[in-house]
């Protein structure tokens, strides 16, 4: 279902660049808009961004690869981010996540073989007073326990 890098339509990439290039510091807004559109930042976008911003392609790649958020390839259909920061750890998040991932046959940063779910660590969702927490897409979940985390993963895979 997701377009492969080579298929990302050049016209749309050019449009997105044009929409943002007038900004002061347009690079991150361009990456965010591309990822919003394509679920990743297509390789094919790097050269036109470099042209538009008068940078080398290596510089553009350097910026993109610096940030955890920007992906080279589309993720699974649902991205489940489980918090691994201290406040969640104090409520047992590490054991909770390890158990749920093992049960689901998944690993950190991995996508399920059916392409339905990608699991990623996140370091703080600002839900530290109702830990442990996770985010599926933009939807937040707090006060997780074994049953709730299993349910979230199962729903993401269904």
């Amino acid at each position: 279902m997701s377009p492969s890098t080579s298929e990302a339509p050049t016209a749309r990439i050019e449009e997105i660049i044009a929409e943002h290039r007038h900004l002061e510091g347009p690079m991150l807004p361009i990456f965010h808009a591309l990822q919003e559109e394509f679920d990743h930042v297509p390789e094919a976008a790097l050269a036109p961004i470099a042209d538009a911003l008068n940078l080398t392609r290596a510089e553009v790649h350097g910026v993109m690869s610096f940030y955890h958020d920007f992906r080279k390839a589309p993720p699974g259909r649902h991205v489940v981010k489980i918090c691994r920061a201290e406040a969640c750890q104090s409520m047992g998040s590490e054991a909770l996540a390890a158990r749920a991932l093992e049960k689901a046959g998944l690993d950190w940063h991995a996508t399920s073989p059916d392409g339905r779910v990608t699991v990623e660590p996140v370091y703080c969702l600002g839900l530290c007073a109702c830990a442990p927490a996770a985010m599926v897409g933009d939807k937040l979940h707090a006060r997780l326990n074994e049953a709730r985390l299993d349910k979230i993963l199962a729903e993401a895979r269904s």
């Binding site: 510091g25 347009p26 690079m27 991150l28 807004p29 610096f66 940030y67 955890h68 920007f70 370091y123």
Partner: peptide, 28 residues
């Protein structure tokens, strides 16, 4: 004013790294 979105780098909470990121550079 404008709202700009970060991109998951903790170090960008450091002010000079944040400024680089806002300018569209690596958050160094």
């Amino acid at each position: 004013m404008e709202i700009r979105s970060g991109a998951g780098a903790y170090v960008c909470g450091e002010e000079t790294s944040l400024l680089n990121s806002l300018e569209g550079k690596r958050g160094i």
